[in-house]
Design a binder for these strands. Structure first.
Length: 228
DNA sequence: GCATTAAATCCCC
DNA sequence: GGGGATTTAATGC
């Protein structure tokens, strides 16, 4: 698949005409990273924007004793290292490729210039970042106020594929219990325990991938007065 | 309710 | 087959 087509799949560039995509294409470099590679660290002084063309990336932080906190998992069409690309802030997250991943790299200078020529991109960008910020706000509220069971359910709802007219919604990422644990501030064992409990309650099921019973879960959260 | 520890079992390279 | 991931159980706060 050609690069320009892939660029159009990046959500903030969705609506751009072909000429604009071609102009953008000439400004970017393609980078491949393998599954498991940590390709960004807090100490990196990068000054670039990464466009995630293909793959799955986990953003996380480390504390002094090496425990991880996963801030977000991003799929194709997303952007990362926006703090370094937009402001004078340093990158403060680790980025790990959860699958083999293809990225486009765009310098801060070129990105700013491109945005001023295409204000609609700036608007899309703000929309995307605001949505992500909201997700993090809500997750921190869940971690502070809810039990592990409801933190997991909230997380899975967030990662469930959207056309959920079916009873069971598929979870869009391949998540290990370890990944879930680092996102909700619990141990892997507690996640395992809680997940098997949720299976017994028929709120989730696993086959080739993980599924969540959106109707039951929404109902459960409502009756408990938890916003979802 | 959850972390911790430990031991058993599962799964994939 | 072996190492990582998951599961289960016991115990303590």
């Amino acid at each position: 698949m050609d690069k320009i087509h892939l660029l159009s799949k990046i959500s903030i560039f969705h609506e751009l005409p072909v000429e604009a995509l071609q102009a953008l294409d000439s400004l970017t470099l393609t980078k491949h990273v393998q599954k498991g590679d940590v390709f960004l660290s807090p100490d990196d002084n990068i000054n670039t924007l990464y466009l995630l063309k293909k793959g799955q990336v986990r953003l996380y932080q480390l504390n002094a004793v090496g425990k991880q906190f996963t801030v977000d998992i991003l799929g194709s069409g997303n952007v990362l290292s926006e703090a370094s690309a937009l402001s004078e802030q340093k990158n403060f997250l680790y980025a790990e490729a959860m699958t083999d991943t293809m990225l486009c790299v765009l310098s801060k200078h070129d990105f700013k210039k491109f945005m001023s020529n295409h204000p609609e991109v700036a608007f899309q960008f703000i929309t995307l970042l605001t949505k992500r910020l909201n997700d993090v706000y809500i997750m921190s509220q869940k971690i502070a106020l809810e039990d592990v069971k409801y933190r997991i359910l909230y997380l899975l709802l967030r990662f469930a594929e959207s056309p959920s007219d079916k009873e069971w919604a598929k979870i869009r990422y391949r998540l290990r219990h370890q990944d879930i644990a680092t996102m909700i501030g619990a141990t892997r064992e507690t996640v395992s325990n809680t997940m098997s409990q949720l299976k017994k309650e028929h709120l989730i099921k696993s086959g080739m991938s993980l599924y969540i019973h959106t109707y039951k879960v929404h109902h459960l959260l409502e009756t408990r007065g938890i916003s979802s």
